[in-house]
Simulated scan of single mutants.
Amino acid sequence: MAKAEAVKKRAPVKTRRSPVGASPGTLIADPAARRSELRLTLISPEKFKTIDKASIDDLNTHCDNWPVVWLDCTGLANIQLIEEIGRIFNLHPLALEDVVNTGQRPKVDFFEDHAFVVMRMIDDVKVHRYEQIAVFFGRNFVVTFQEREGDPFDPVRKRIESSMPNRLRERGADYLAYALIDAIVDSYFPPIDSASELVDHIEDEMLRSPQRHQMQQLHQMRRGTNALKNVLWPLRDALATLIRSDVSYIKAETKVFLNDTLDHSIGLIELVETQRDTMTGLIEMHLSLSQARTNEIISVLTIVSAIFIPLTFIVGVWGMNFDPETSPWNMPELRAYYGYPSALAFMLVVAVSLVAFFKWKKWL
């Protein structure tokens, strides 16, 4: 039951767009967007500092004094705050427009001093909740925008807080951006593995006893698999674009790690494709099993009917209004002393003969 509850119907992702004719880079907040909160992480090889519920003043005070700055903005309701963040880090206005217009296709854009990555991430593995995340990074900063609380970045935060030697605190902003992107990609593995286990469970149940709810589960899961496929394919292309880039703020050694993340994304695509083919095969098998069961029932009913049709004919003939006194052809056996058991015995012989004939023809 718990596994069955894991398969849920997901609402389609809707992309919000600026009004027709609006100036490029116009930011329009979603009325349902969450309240914006900032978390500032200041990083150097020797130490780190985290400021929860940070403010613009914290940014202006600390950003120039630390080698790497990671600003995480949760919630996209405060357009003025997002615009101010864009001004401080010199983020391109068209990219900021894509930040607030959620539902974007995964992609990578390069600007003069920073890169912009759009992805979809799982912020709650238990309920399979997805959201858009935007990642900006340059020479000394990483800025992430999330729709709501919850993300797969806790392992990255723990690595930043761990003791030396610490690669995350030594390698710069591009490596931190890689670590965040890699965490997002790896977060897809648990739900995909859970879906694989559920598919195996459905297959075992189906082989024992095909049920209607199994078909519904498989259709819902295949819909989710198609949605994953639509996310992972452009994600793979975005990672490949990052690796092929020649911008100065992405170092060659970081591209080696990004290439590993690209391999992970390709592995996810293969897993999803395999799952989709498996579910398609199970749907076809369910239809075949249901049809075979229907044919079996129809065969049994046909055989029973074929046996009782001649018996019904015999009984019908004996049940006609004959008068043996009128003519010897009017069923003289109606007055026979053993007429009734003889008739039953004759009908039994007919039934047994039909069953033997069906077995000889291998219909039974």
Rank of each mutant, 00 (worst) to 15 (best):
M1I: 11
A2L: 12
A2W: 08
K8D: 06
K9Y: 10
R10Y: 11
P12T: 06
T15Q: 13
R16E: 09
S23R: 14
G25C: 08
I28C: 11
P31I: 09
R35Q: 14
S36G: 08
R39K: 13
L40F: 01
F48V: 06
K49I: 08
I51H: 03
S55Q: 11
W70P: 02
L71K: 01
N78T: 10
I79W: 07
L81F: 07
E84C: 04
G86Y: 00
L96I: 05
E97D: 08
V108T: 05
F110T: 04
R120G: 05
M121T: 07
M121Q: 03
I122Y: 01
E131C: 07
I133W: 00
F136R: 00
F137H: 00
T144F: 02
G150M: 06
F153A: 06
F153M: 05
D154Q: 14
V156W: 01
K158I: 07
I160H: 05
I160L: 11
S163F: 11
P165C: 09
E170R: 08
A173V: 02
A173G: 04
A177V: 01
D182L: 03
A183H: 03
I184S: 00
I184D: 00
P191T: 11
P191G: 09
H201S: 13
M206F: 08
L207C: 07
R208S: 13
R212M: 13
H213D: 14
Q216V: 12
L218F: 03
M221I: 08
L228K: 07
L228E: 01
L232H: 03
W233T: 09
L239C: 02
L242I: 14
L242N: 02
D246C: 03
I250D: 03
V256K: 01
L262Y: 04
I266N: 07
G267S: 15
R276P: 01
T278I: 10
T280I: 12
L282N: 05
S288P: 02
A292I: 08
T294S: 11
N295L: 05
V300C: 03
V304L: 13
V304Y: 06
I307L: 13
P310S: 11
L311Q: 11
F313P: 10
I314V: 15
T326F: 13
T326G: 07
P328Y: 13
M331A: 13
P332I: 11
E333F: 13
L334G: 04
A336G: 14
Y337V: 15
P341S: 09
S342D: 10
A343P: 02
A345K: 12
S353R: 05
L354R: 00
L354P: 04
K362S: 10
